[in-house]
Design a protein around this nucleic acid. Structure first.
Lengths: 188, 188
DNA sequence: TTCTTAGCACCTAGGTGCCAAGAT
DNA sequence: ATCTTGGCACCTAGGTGCTAAGAA
């Protein structure tokens, strides 16, 4: 029903240990989260949204105050609400989602804690009569792609591999295929 | 209820004779069309859209085949549908509207004929139960600002005044105030 | 030490007017 | 003649990782 786009790319990062930069002003994810959706009712209106939470970790209750699985912020896809036909027409991109480490962020970006591991989740909700959600929606779909889990950092910890045309280091990733950031990569 | 933003700028252009470039790929308007909206019901959903048509001209029926006031394309503001509160929250910008002279344009841009005069119109429509319009909407508001009328051209006819830092000519306009295209203007 | 921040240089995408060549 | 087209150089806005300085 839902397929992750560029899954191979995600998997390669996942092997090395995906890291996502978070900044005060907000940073996009790389790779970006895009999905192909099928099986919706073309005429029904849906809302697509993402949240990012701390996956269940083996070290539960190590400290009593650890993140209490806070509600956290949501990223509602800007096309929402839209018909099933619209969502299935082409890839749905969450490219503009931004991550921040500023707990007082005023932009509505998703707030994360540096050096913690996170798991993005995708939710598909039927829009109610007011094109809203949460009030009377009892049923919705949630999709989790484990390979999109990542560690939030404020600067890359993995400087193993260098890319980026020229003498500059870049995001760790061997034999990087073409992507949204393509033409600038090179691999010594 | 609706106020044109940067009206002085529009008026100055209007005095000289506003011209808008149209290209095959689609061109934005300059100045851009922005309005301040008030008096809406904050909770009601509205759709804002523009059309651009040929104003009634004194030379009616000069040729029998003259443009038959064709329906023409509409530009639905990308935020549509949205609540009155949303529209009133800040300026509503139609900056991304694009004009083209390609009668087979595949992008949905507004199609115009070069060397013809046009008059943009703003429509405010209450969204129906399906967030659509046109089906059962019997009442809607239309606003026309005569100072936004313009002549569509494929290259500027008015080269009276030069602007743009450096030795290059630019859009005719004396003592251009700051605008979306600001820092590059100069006026010898 | 370890992590965070601010500033920077670089890059891309896309909008802009100009010019010369082409079409009518 | 006049108008149109395509290519170009220029500009802006915004995203990116790096580095050096700062904070814990």
């Amino acid at each position: 029903k839902v397929f992750l786009h560029e899954r191979e790319l995600w998997l390669k990062f996942h092997e090395v240990g995906t890291e996502m930069i978070i900044t005060k002003a907000g940073r996009r994810m790389f790779p970006s989260y895009k999905v192909k959706v099928t099986g919706l009712n073309p005429k029904t209106k849906y809302i697509l949204l993402m949240d990012i939470l701390i996956p269940v970790s083996p070290r539960r209750s190590v400290t009593g105050k650890a993140e209490p699985a806070m509600p956290g912020r949501l990223y509602v896809h800007p096309d929402s609400p839209a018909t099933g036909a619209h969502w299935m027409r082409q890839l749905v991109s969450f490219q503009k989602l931004k991550l921040t480490n500023n707990h007082l962020d005023p932009f509505g970006h998703i707030i994360l804690n540096s050096m913690h591991k996170y798991q993005p989740r995708l939710h598909i909700v039927k829009a109610d009569e007011n094109n809203g959600f949460g009030s009377k929606n009892t049923a919705f779909c949630t999709h989790v792609f484990p390979e999109t889990a990542f560690i939030a950092v404020t600067s890359y910890q993995n400087h193993k591999v260098r890319g980026w045309a020229g003498p500059r280091p870049c995001k760790p990733f061997p034999s990087c295929p073409s992507s949204s950031f393509t033409p600038s990569f090179s691999f010594p």
